[in-house]
């Protein structure tokens, strides 16, 4: 799991206000020249169960599991959780909130976070 210094997770105490328990999904942040690529693994989450909230200082990804455990099934052994996924990342105006793009395929959410103009590398020609 690699984590860029500009996209950090807040202290755990900040999230304790939420009563419903959530699970932090497995994620990965990769930096490109002009954007950050965030990959979040959300197995069992359909397109309408994803909620992405992008703000100037935070990015919240929520995933609601679409499948319900059918009644009448007896669990014998479990390794997964029924709780929803929630990932909160904080940043300091690292990306352009208006240009965030996301794609969900086979339980993998790929979010492209274009860097703000101020963060993009600039070539300065020497006169």
């Amino acid at each position: 799991m690699s984590l860029e210094s500009t996209l950090t997770q807040p202290e755990a105490s900040q999230c304790a206000c939420d009563v419903r328990s959530t699970v932090k999904p497995v994620f990965n942040v990769r930096e490109r020249e002009d954007a950050y690529d965030l990959t979040v693994l959300l197995p069992g989450v359909a397109k309408d169960g994803v909620e992405i909230t992008a703000e100037d200082d935070s990015l919240v990804v929520r995933g609601r599991r679409s499948e319900k455990t059918a009644a009448g099934l007896t669990p014998l052994y479990r390794e997964s959780f029924d709780a929803d996924f929630e990932l909160t990342l904080t940043h300091e105006k690292a990306f352009d909130v208006d240009k965030v793009a996301a794609e969900l395929r086979d339980g993998v959410l790929r979010i492209t976070l274009p860097k703000t103009e101020a963060l993009k590398p600039r070539k300065i020609s020497v006169s």
């Binding site: 007896t74 014998l76 997964s80 339980g107």
Partner: peptide
């Protein structure tokens, strides 16, 4: 905890009267 680096597939095992159900999390395959 299964992650990008983990190669073990997490599974759940359920049963009812007629079937056994195995649910495996395999995102991105």
């Amino acid at each position: 905890l299964a992650g990008f680096g983990s190669s073990r597939i997490p599974v759940d095992l359920h049963e009812d009267q007629n079937n056994v159900y195995v649910r495996a999390e395999l995102p991105g395959v």
